[in-house]
Design a protein around this nucleic acid. Sequence first.
DNA 1: ATGGATGCAAACGCTTTGCATAAAT
DNA 2: ATTTATGCAAAGCGTTTGCATCCAT
Lengths: 155, 155
Amino acid sequence: MPHPSSSPIPALDALKRAGLLGTAAQVAVLDYLQRTEHGHFSAEEIHRRIAASGDRMNLSTTYRVLNQLVEAGFVANVSLGKHHSLYELNTGEVHDHLVCVVCGRIEEFSDPTINRRRVAIAKKFGLRFIGKTLALHGVCAACAARAHPPRPRAK
Amino acid sequence: MPHPSSSPIPALDALKRAGLLGTAAQVAVLDYLQRTEHGHFSAEEIHRRIAASGDRMNLSTTYRVLNQLVEAGFVANVSLGKHHSLYELNTGEVHDHLVCVVCGRIEEFSDPTINRRRVAIAKKFGLRFIGKTLALHGVCAACAARAHPPRPRAK
DNA sequence: ATGGATGCAAACGCTTTGCATAAAT
DNA sequence: ATTTATGCAAAGCGTTTGCATCCAT
């Protein structure tokens, strides 16, 4: 995948500073995630979106690049339950996720109380804290309304 | 896998009440989890332990039985990060997990404050709450000591 | 020329499934 | 007789890897 000769991309600089080459594939992935901040995507989705925009890149390259970006700290890999591994831009802000099990929609939230308790609990158990996974699963308002319409209108 | 003609097993009754047949395989799995309350096992581990105790059962049967038990509410399937899907007895008590990323040891905890916040947050976002996944990952005290011995003794 | 990055295909680990057989009601 | 469960082998899915090639320095 060759570099498209477009205007200078902010992602490129950051990549080089992190010691990566800043190849077209790396730029494409990081750039996509930066442009969709607060989006959550599977590796395959990211691959598909980039392909849709004209640059073709192999799926295994997408995985390799994502792993590099995670290691370099640009991207976070969140596991929201079985077979639900998503990538998001690492903004540095601690946050957790709400997941609608019907439509798959994902929202972010951050609760200082929970965050404080987490630290306290890790300390209490003597755990040198590395990371956390917190996701609340449920049915979002829209899906609940669709499933149990408040007043099914006659047609 | 035929029923071993042992003494009446508490698991059997519960299974029948839940509408399952209470076959040898079902009893073996549920019984194992009941005898190791607060244990956390992969499907393969459960399969191996049961095989080790003499009853041979196919791995796919183990998966099928585990799924039945989850659906019937006897067992919970907890996903603790990627490729870490474990089964535990469902005791009805809400709890979360601490995971040592070095030795894999798992501890349970339950924090009323966190639990309260969870409910509040789900409500605030209009999410009909179904379940949650919370795991704290880190290095447990024992592993930390092994990695950074406070005073490496000369041999 | 060197070391990293890529494409491709093949392998991986975990989990599920199709199908024929066997067991329970 | 009918439904449900089992073993076995094969397929599924998401992800990783080996290897030859390619690209950037």
